[in-house]
Simulated assay, not measured.
Amino acid sequence: MNKVDVAIIGGGPAGLSAGLMLGRARKRTIVIDEGRPRNGVTREAHGFLTRDGISPREFRRIAQEQLRVYPSVSQAEDTVVSISGEDGSFLLETATGMKIASKKLLFAAGMKDRKLKIPGLADVYGKSAFVCPYCDGWELRDEPLVVISRGAALMHFAPLLSGWTKRFVVCTNGPDELSEAERDELRDHGIPLFDTPIRAILSSEGMVNHVTLEDGIEIPCTGIFFKSEL
Rank of each mutant, 00 (worst) to 15 (best):
V6I: 14
P13D: 08
L16D: 00
A18N: 04
M21C: 09
V31A: 13
V31D: 06
E34C: 07
G35C: 10
P37K: 05
G40V: 05
G40L: 07
V41W: 11
T42M: 00
T42C: 05
R43H: 10
F48W: 03
F48A: 00
P56A: 11
I62E: 10
L67F: 04
L67N: 03
V69K: 15
P71S: 15
S72Q: 11
E77H: 13
E77W: 06
E77V: 14
V81S: 02
S82P: 01
I83K: 10
I83F: 09
I83A: 12
D87W: 09
A95V: 09
A95C: 08
A95Q: 14
T96L: 10
A101F: 12
A101E: 15
K103E: 15
L105I: 08
L106W: 05
F107G: 11
A108E: 11
A109L: 12
M111Y: 07
D113I: 06
R114S: 01
K115R: 15
L116D: 02
K117H: 02
K117M: 04
G120Y: 02
G120P: 06
A122K: 03
D123K: 15
S128L: 02
S128H: 01
S128W: 00
V131Q: 07
V131C: 12
C132A: 10
D136T: 01
D136S: 02
D136H: 06
P144H: 09
L145R: 05
L145Y: 02
V146N: 01
G151C: 06
P159N: 08
P159E: 06
S162K: 14
S162M: 14
S162A: 15
W164T: 12
V169W: 11
G174D: 03
G174I: 00
P175A: 14
D176W: 02
S179N: 04
S179V: 02
E180R: 08
A181F: 01
A181I: 01
E182S: 06
E182V: 01
E185L: 08
E185Y: 08
I191G: 02
P192E: 02
D195Q: 09
D195Y: 02
T196Y: 06
A200Y: 02
S203L: 05
F225E: 02
S228W: 14
S228R: 12
S228Y: 15
